[in-house]
């Protein structure tokens, strides 16, 4: 009896890990198919042109206000705190390095990713999940339309492009917009501020932040689309898959951020 119990336990563990491995392989395969579909999209853009536009509108334009607010507040806080503390140690110029490090290299892409996950990844997962439940995906397949090429690829492109563009805006608001906000509390010379900022800003910082945005965009779009299409038949699966998309999105973005940062400092 005890031996049978142990065997069952081992079997369960084995099955669980085999399932995990199988799911990982399936997700990797899906990612590959999505990338192929994205590359094919550029040869025949008419397929999902409107979908991409709408995705950019919902993910990019509509998130801009929230991200601008976060960027302005963050930039202003860093400038005010830095300007009040750092000059006391004769290290006033460090404020520009800190601003670039925090807004451009680290928090910019990550906060954009969090906002996009919270707003758009959930929406995409829910939308696709409901499409599965209402057999719309089956209808696409039945009429010979590839759902990955028609549904996944435009969302991939839309979310990834939105991430890149939102990150540029986040940096603009965080670095430049916060200057205007800070002027309300503390006088800083316009020319001096922007000259120093542009001196300290390196191309590697810009490449790093754009690379992070691009990778985060891929991760978010993949987790959102994959989990949306993973819904089988019940509408109760939809919120579960949405939660999985959010959790996986956050986790993978943080992991990718750490990896890219480590590569940057190598």
């Amino acid at each position: 009896m005890a031996i049978q119990g142990a065997q069952q336990m081992l079997k369960n563990i084995g099955c669980r890990y085999l399932d995990l491995f199988s799911e990982f392989r399936y997700a990797a395969g899906f990612f590959y198919r999505s990338i192929v579909a994205v590359s094919q999209y550029f040869y025949r853009p008419q397929i999902g042109h409107r979908v991409i536009t709408m995705q950019l509108l919902f993910t990019g334009v509509e998130a801009l206000a929230l991200l601008a607010l976060i960027a302005l507040a963050l930039g202003a806080v860093i400038i005010i705190q830095g300007m009040s503390v750092l000059p006391q140690f004769g290290q006033g110029s460090l404020i520009y390095r800190i601003l670039i490090m925090v807004i451009t290299r680290e928090l910019g892409p990550l906060l954009c990713a969090f906002v996009v996950i919270a707003r758009s990844a959930t929406a995409v997962s829910t939308e696709l999940g409901h499409m599965v439940v209402s057999h719309q995906i089956e209808a696409y397949v039945a009429t010979g339309v590839d759902p990955v090429r028609y549904l996944a690829a435009p969302r991939f492109i839309g979310i990834t492009l939105s991430m890149l563009i939102l990150n540029v805006y986040f940096n603009l608001f965080g670095l430049a917009g916060s200057y205007l906000l800070t002027r309300l509390f503390q006088p800083i010379h316009f020319t001096e501020y922007f000259h120093n900022l542009l001196i300290f800003l390196r191309t590697t910082d810009i490449v790093s932040t754009l690379l992070k945005s691009f990778v985060f965009g891929l991760i978010i779009s993949h987790t959102a689309v994959y989990n949306g299409l993973k819904v089988q038949q019940s509408s109760t699966e939809v919120p579960q898959r949405v939660i999985k998309a959010v959790v996986q999105g956050f986790s993978l973005c943080i992991l990718a951020d750490a990896v890219i940062t480590m590569i940057y400092y190598l």
Binding site: T53, L57, G60, V61, I165, L198, I199, L201, T203
Partner: peptide, 30 residues
């Protein structure tokens, strides 16, 4: 929704211009 393409176009264009401007200014300052 009606002017989605125009709005998105401006959204993308402005970011590209801003990025290009920053790179040019960086080049001048550095």
């Amino acid at each position: 929704i009606k002017y989605a393409e125009q709005i998105v176009g401006l959204f993308v264009l402005f970011s590209v211009i801003a990025l290009a401007l920053v790179l040019i200014l960086m080049g001048i300052n550095q």
